[in-house]
Every structure is written in C-alpha cells, then in structure tokens.
Amino acid sequence: MTQAMDFDGQTSCATADGVTQEVYALLAQANLCRIRGNWPDAIEKCMAAMRMDPQSVAAHGLLGDIYENKGCLDDAIQWYRMALDINPDSPADHQKLERLLIQKSRILDRTKPAAAPPSPVAAVAPPAEQKSGWVRDPFKTLRVTAFSSAALVLAIVIVAMLVSHSHGAGNAAQSQIATPPVVLTSDGLTPSNDDAHGGLSDVRETVDERLLTGMRGDSDLTGHDVSVTDVQSDPRSGRATVTILIAAKDSASLNRDTVAEAILRAAHSAMRLTDPASYTDFTVRVLIPSSSDASTASGAALAALADISRANQAVLDADIAQLTPAQRQQMLTHTWWAGSVLDTPIS
C-alpha cells in the first residue's frame, strides 16, 4: 500500500537551491513510480537525479519515502538522516525521521515476550481433626518445637563450615583469575575498572565515541590519507555508518578504484574495533574536499556511498592492496557514485 508524499514542499526547496529542471523531472518520475509501487524504477531514477545533484535534499528525502513505503524502515531512516546531514533545517525530514523512530520503537516493544502471570496458589486449610488434635495434645507441640530448633542449629553449623571452606578456596584461586578482554558491546557500554569494584563511576563512553577515537588512531587509514569525520551506530539493526574524508594530493589520483579501496579500509577498521556479534553491516560515506584545504571536511562533496558486510572481514584481514579492482567492487553493495566527481568506471 502506498501513501501520498509531500513532494511539492521538497522539490520547491530544491528548486530554490538551484536544482535543474532535468533533476526535477527525474524526481517527479521517481515519485510517480513510487505511487504505483514500482520500487526498482523509483530507486533508479532517484539515483540518477543524485548523480546530477549529489546535494539534493529532495532526492535523499524521496528515497526515504520509497523505502518507507516498501517497508524497509532501517533503510528509510538512513536516507532521512542523510537528507538532514545536507540540510539540518528541513522540517519535513525531521518529522518523517521522528515518526519512523517512534514506529520502530513500538514494533520492538510489541515483539518483546510478555511475562507469564504468576500461577495462583490455593490456600489449603488443615483438616478440622488435625487442628483440634494440636490443641488437645500440648506435649506434641513441645516435641515438634524442640526438634525444629535442633534442626535449625545443625543447619547453621553446616552453612558456616561451607562458607569457611569456600572462602579459603577462593583466596587460593584468586591469583589464577584472568581479566576478561574489553570489547564494544551492543548496549553502547564497555566494562571499566570502577565497575569491577562496585560501580564507583557512572560515566560511560558510547560506542560512537570509542569507535570514532579508535578509527582516527588507525595507522592503516591515516597512512592512506583517509580521515574519519563521523560515526553513527545503531545496535538494534547491527549497522554502523562511517563518514570518511579522502585528502587526495591531486584529482588524477581519485577514481572509483582508489575510493573503493578507502571504503574497504574504513569498513575493515570498524570491523576490528566492534563486537562481531553486535555489528554485522557497515555503511561508508565518502567525502572529497572541494576547497584548497584538503585536510578538513569544510565544503567537501559527497562522492560515494556503499555498504559492506562483516562476512568479508577474513578477506580484508589478508591484504586489501592485493585485491583487484573487480574484487573490491564485488564486496560493495548498494553502491552509489557521484557522477560529477568520479566519472571513471571500473573495468
């Protein structure tokens, strides 16, 4: 089932920013395909419009609408976020992103298993004869009380002996206990020394901060003129999105092969720094500086966008430089290239 899209508001903003009539026509055709439920043609026409205008907020937002109508909420959320990266003041994309996040949260709440209600325990009253028997025989009550007291004293002595024995064994084996490795987990927290001693610190670093710091210190990236500008992770879907900046020494050194190699190196760095059980997919956004200062993301243009699965980590662990251009391209999925920046295809 398709829904009507507020496409007029999106395109009017894009036209004011200088989008050509050809881009507008492609987006209009993509929106028509979306309404008819023709998802492949709708996505392809949006991609064609983005190749002409990589900074088109309308194209990014329309892709979010397409994936939302298609039922792919995670993909729709990613495209709305990218639209807001380009224009943080877009109220329509803000509303759509907030609506999808609330919808996804409700879906997750509905899928949680409900706690089983406690089974009622019927109170059974003692038989009338037994109750009256206790009243008629007070000596029986004294005998039961004495027996219960003796059993309680014996139990206390046995527990004290067991505690004393286990304490001694624990001291003897304390030196053999190894400290577990610290890894990034899906809840965004890492264990600390304070936690091991009673939780003295309430401050926790998020996965994004730890991952961003780790990747910025990765010599495999800095040694190839690749810097990490941003990291966004979603433990619920097991995906991390990394934005990198390639500081090319000259425009001739930039082609789809060198950019694909940078994407693989960034994804490989993120794979090594995250928990394999929690993060299985990675999205890499590539920026290329358009100003004279190639060391900053100021004025940089979006050049490429691609996904890569952790299933390729074993190949990346070997040597990325030894891969052929075709092998690098085969590892990337949902690849998008900015035609105005990288026109040279991979043979």
Rank of each mutant, 00 (worst) to 15 (best):
A247F: 07
G133Y: 07
D8L: 14
S149K: 12
T280H: 08
P91I: 14
P127H: 15
P88S: 13
A155V: 09
G168E: 13
F147Q: 00
T179K: 10
A240Y: 09
C13K: 01
D195F: 03
M82T: 04
G18C: 02
D109R: 07
R136W: 03
T243K: 12
P181R: 06
L212C: 09
D208Q: 15
S149I: 14
A240S: 10
A116S: 08
D234T: 02
A262F: 04
K249V: 10
G199D: 01
R328Q: 02
N193C: 01
S201A: 07
H167L: 11
H94C: 14
I246N: 02
R51S: 05
N69F: 15
R236E: 07
M271V: 01
V183M: 14
L184P: 01
R143P: 00
A318T: 15
T296Y: 14
V341C: 06
S164D: 00
A123F: 10
P345Y: 03
R81M: 14
A14M: 08
S219Q: 04
A128M: 06
E261R: 04
A59C: 10
G18V: 11
D53R: 08
C33H: 11
Q330I: 15
N312H: 12
G170M: 10
P127G: 11
P88D: 09
V207W: 11
A297P: 05
S251D: 11
A260H: 10
D293C: 01
E261A: 12
L323N: 02
A338M: 03
Q322S: 11
G188L: 04
S175T: 00
C46K: 12
A25D: 10
K45L: 06
P180E: 12
S105E: 03
L189A: 05
T111E: 13
T206V: 14
S290L: 07
H60V: 09
R36W: 07
S192V: 01
A267E: 06
T2S: 08
A83N: 07
P54N: 03
A125Q: 02
